[in-house]
Design a binder for these strands. Sequence first.
DNA 1: ATAATAGTTGACTATTTTGCTGGGTTAAGT
DNA 2: ACTTAACCCAGCAAAATAGTCAACTATTAT
Lengths: 157, 157
Amino acid sequence: MRLTTKGRYAVTAMLDLAFHSQIKPVTLTDIAARQTISLSYLEQLFARLRRAGMVKGVRGPGGGYKLCRKTSDINIADIIAAVNEPLDSTKCGGEANCQKDQACLTHDLWMGLSEQIKDYLKSISLADLLEKNQVQEVAIRQHHDAQQTIEIYRHQD
Amino acid sequence: MRLTTKGRYAVTAMLDLAFHSQIKPVTLTDIAARQTISLSYLEQLFARLRRAGMVKGVRGPGGGYKLCRKTSDINIADIIAAVNEPLDSTKCGGEANCQKDQACLTHDLWMGLSEQIKDYLKSISLADLLEKNQVQEVAIRQHHDAQQTIEIYRHQD
DNA sequence: ATAATAGTTGACTATTTTGCTGGGTTAAGT
DNA sequence: ACTTAACCCAGCAAAATAGTCAACTATTAT
């Protein structure tokens, strides 16, 4: 589980999509403008997200992208994993000599931690983040943004 | 909170250090050999860890590095933060126009998630990982490595 | 004192990843 | 037909990562 700006872009874009794709598909051009991410970079990210079965592209006028699943069924770990390379990270692979090695002992510790982080991120869904935001919005800002969030939240259900 | 191989190296090295620095300081040369990390790269990482007040260098023969605090008082988030650049990640900084922007709304969501991850990693200490390993070791392997772990665990207290 | 050990520093290089530009092709709506 | 947008791809500049090299300083053992 790697956590870089690339993953952040992906999650940000997916959040934006979740916000706006309730009625009709959202174009990458729109997301690019709102989130100030270059269109071509978004295309790369969404190509991976599509291959991972998280979003669906709709071609032609009025087209764009929409989510394949409910926001509550899309977790953060999957989004990040989708845009990153598989990441072996083992360095010792399945080598036999590694069993009794001190190095691999420490390696196991890291792997364990990595799994913990992954599980943690798997437990957080897009819906969780959106909901959390809704609460924050209503509490802190109370203007049209909040209203919009509530609208979306209703559609989501 | 960024999570890359750099952070992994740092955590791995700190784990190695926690394992071996109970009686006497551990040289970076040893860690480099065990964990197959280049010595000079370790030097860079430990320079940062030292500046962060997590490890202490002991010069002269028999010298090396040792932990400044108990393993239970050293958390993963701090280790990773120590070796990484400060990471602004804002892109909107504290700009005024960002308040009512849709982009910044999504940005806030990410920041919230980032904080969650950070808090999570803050809640995990070196001792936690070592202890977890000890349990695993006893359960699965039951050889000298496990014995060694128990020894260290006693010294730690 | 002196040699050996080991940390400290800085500059320098190679590789990888990142983020982006710009060119296209293909499918769908008008 | 024409537009719109997804889709695809080759390449490229900047940054981060990972590692090297060399000189230097502080400490300790003899």
